[in-house]
Design a protein around this nucleic acid. Structure first.
Lengths: 206, 206
DNA sequence: TATAAAATACCCCAAACGAGCTATTGATTC
DNA sequence: GAATCAATAGCTCGTTTGGGGTATTTTATA
């Protein structure tokens, strides 16, 4: 079996070094590169012979998700596995959008980790059953996740109205409009107006 | 000349009855069916010997546009003429997408209306010159006013990046990105991100 | 070779925005 | 009857945005 070349991006020294040793000492695996932050990883990985990157999400500076997003564009032959303590919906969803192929919790034991790395390398997408469930649930939304009111608000936003204008237009308090907008962002997994409108149009919600 | 069988969908009693009388009393035309709402029209028209439907847009409950969309699927031998007081771009565009063959304003005089019904029956698409103009304009390939750089910036904005992120992404000063954005707004005649993205997508600029 | 775009970069400032909260009411749904 | 969701309304705070400028360099193009 050919050797799988791994890189680690992880700010915790102990975890990074432990993983480094375990992975590099295993047959069929080579782990010569480990980075403590997103920036150094982004700078180096495009020039390295790497097959799989283990990416922590919580990093100082840019997050692992951002690093994945940027690296994905330059290195589409590399697979990314998110390795994290968080398992909230937003992190999972964002990671997958950013181009991650797998999403594992840090308490995954080393032997399983090796198996999962092999799975990714072979074109699979390993993830724990809890995480798989969340993903199924998030993709299961066939119908419009937005309520009627939210859709109405989003349409008005797309016409260039600010929230005060929207409020006046539909006879609501600006505070309520703001709440609706926040809920829209949350449901569409975005953090600003621009992306919300883009996604909504692409998904034919408005 | 063979008789053209007409159905009317119109919630205003007076207008509906007036049209009913005028159309059914004219040589070559027969108007035996008139409905006050979309629902009853959708239920009955598929089983009726009808050639042309005059459809009001503003109806209680489902709109005339929705009714047209649904009826079109079942009855592709029937032609639909939208008859409305609205002449806004969205109504027109949606009506055409829904399958309407003609789009007339309610102030069209009865004699002209008969002429237009005949036109539709003969495969034409009658509409007032104002409406025709709007359609021409909406279909006109508006040449992209944005430069390549501006398009690039707008695409990144639509992904939710703020101008600092955009700047880093394409190795520019944030000041320059801001300038580009201001120029984009100016060219698209908008004054914020939301409307810029909406317009750009609708015009297929991004 | 003018002249016009396009691309680059910088300044100030007020208004708008997004994130993080709490909270009440009325429907649904389990 | 409890729980959840939608809709409503409010608060604070720091960050981002958009509008108003100015200015240089490069690239087309007339």
């Amino acid at each position: 079996m050919e050797t799988i070349h791994i890189a680690i991006v992880e700010d915790d020294n102990e975890i990074r070094q432990t993983l480094h040793l375990i992975l590099d000492g295993s047959t069929g695996f080579s782990c010569k590169y480990a980075f403590p932050d997103a920036e150094s990883a982004i700078a180096s990985i495009p020039n390295l012979p790497v097959d799989v990157v283990l990416m922590d999400i919580d990093l100082p500076g840019k997050t692992g998700i951002e690093a994945t997003r940027e690296l994905r564009k330059k290195c589409d032959h590399i697979d990314f596995i998110m390795l994290t303590v968080q398992s909230d919906d937003d992190s999972i969803f964002e990671s997958l959008c950013a181009g991650a192929s797998g999403y594992l919790l840090k308490d995954t034991n080393p032997v399983d980790l090796l198996v999962h790395i092999k799975e990714v390398y072979d074109g699979g997408s390993p993830m724990s059953s809890q995480i798989a469930r969340r993903i199924i649930n998030s993709f299961r939304i066939i119908d419009n996740p937005l309520s009627e009111r939210e859709t109405e608000v989003l349409k008005l936003l797309s016409q260039g109205l600010n929230y005060k204008d929207v409020a006046e237009h539909i006879f609501l308090s600006p505070h309520t409009v703001k709440t609706h907008i926040k809920n829209i962002y949350s449901k569409l997994h975005v953090n600003n107006r621009a992306e919300a409108i883009y996604k909504a149009i692409k998904q034919k919600l408005i």
